[in-house]
């Protein structure tokens, strides 16, 4: 299609000029598309392709080992909603994990970022200390914490005994196992959020705070009315990233509790792994993956909308 066809007659020069301009723009665009083509192809093959495949698989009764694939329509979704009691427990666990982890992570990250933003001796050392767990191998982190959280000989319980508290068997108590998994996960990843928030805090011009203080605002008011609103975009970013990360948690659960005790820490991605690679039910696992996708998308959009209103 050529834009010049619709150009009014009579002004040949203008027409000519326009054609040249649009050809030029078109050529630029062509080059642009050529430049993004490798990335686009990769995206299509490795992201869009599997995404569509998962949706197709989710409508089949597929067994990886038996090599079978029978179309079953929405049967997998029906099973998941009505015939799989564990699925609902898994969903509950997953939401509990995320809804506790995200606020905890953000509050801790914000508090530490505010503390670290003030210049004091050793600030750099502390920034390093809080960031170190982020670059630590997940496996090493989980194994060390399993030692610390042992029932009798664990470091934590030995410490608690000193102050007269008889600590629970952290990873083998259905209630405490989940809290322990959440707390150790926050400690592992909070450093990343600290860095983002610290950057945002340091970007707030000092005059704002000075002006507020001149007007008689105390520290709490400065934080609540000046800093927090200015940090809103950074907080939005951090909470979305943390939420998505928390819904995708897998290695941490596998290494700390393997979903136990009594499936109390079985979260969605770990359950997908079980269905696909232990039971080889790839059709059902795909249906679960679609649920994960929809939940993640839904929560992210919700958060986006809510925060956007608040920012404005």
């Amino acid at each position: 299609m050529s834009t010049n066809i619709s150009t009014p007659r009579g002004t040949a020069a203008v027409k000519q000029k326009k054609r040249r301009a649009s050809t030029l723009a078109g050529r630029d665009a062509l080059w642009g598309y050529l430049f993004i083509l490798p990335q686009l192809l990769g995206f299509l093959i490795f992201v869009v392709g599997p995404l569509i495949a998962v949706i197709v698989f989710s409508t089949q009764d597929r067994n990886l080992l038996f090599g079978t694939a029978t179309p079953v329509g929405l049967d997998n979704y029906r099973t998941l909603l009505t015939g799989d009691a564990l699925f609902w427990q898994v969903m509950q666990n997953t939401l509990y994990f995320s809804l506790l982890l995200v606020p905890l992570n953000i509050v801790v990250a914000l508090a530490l970022a505010l503390a670290l933003a003030r210049p004091f001796r050793g600030a750099h050392l502390f920034r390093l200390v809080y960031f170190a767990p982020v670059v630590t191998a997940a496996a090493a982190w989980a194994i060390v914490w399993r030692f610390i959280l042992q029932g009798e000989n664990g470091t934590l319980n030995q410490f608690l005994r000193l102050v007269g508290i008889d600590g629970p068997n952290w990873l083998h108590d259905p209630f405490w196992a989940m809290q322990a998994v959440i707390a150790t996960r926050v400690l592992k990843n909070v450093g990343l959020n600290i860095v983002v928030l610290l950057g945002a805090i340091l970007n707030i011009p000092a005059q704002y705070e000075e002006a507020a203080r001149v007007d008689g605002a105390g520290s709490w008011r400065v934080f609540w009315n000046i800093k927090l609103p200015l940090l809103a975009p950074a907080l939005l970013f951090v909470s979305v990233i943390t939420l998505i990360g928390s819904l995708k948690v897998f290695d941490h659960i596998m290494l700390m509790t393997a979903g136990g005790p009594g499936n109390s820490t079985m979260v969605l991605v770990y359950y997908i792994y079980y269905q696909a690679f232990q039971f080889f039910q790839t059709g059902y696992a795909s249906a679960l993956a679609v649920v994960l996708f929809v939940v993640t998308l839904g929560l992210t959009i919700l958060q986006w909308v809510l925060r956007k209103e608040e920012i404005q």
Binding site: M1, Y33, L44, G49, A53, V56
Partner: peptide, 25 residues
């Protein structure tokens, strides 16, 4: 011209997706 290119690109993407879909099946 630009629209033309867009359209071709779009049809290329659709074609590619169809291939992926068929191969997935």
């Amino acid at each position: 011209m630009q629209h033309n290119l867009m359209r071709r690109l779009a049809s290329a993407i659709v074609l590619l997706l169809s291939i992926l879909l068929v191969s997935a099946c």
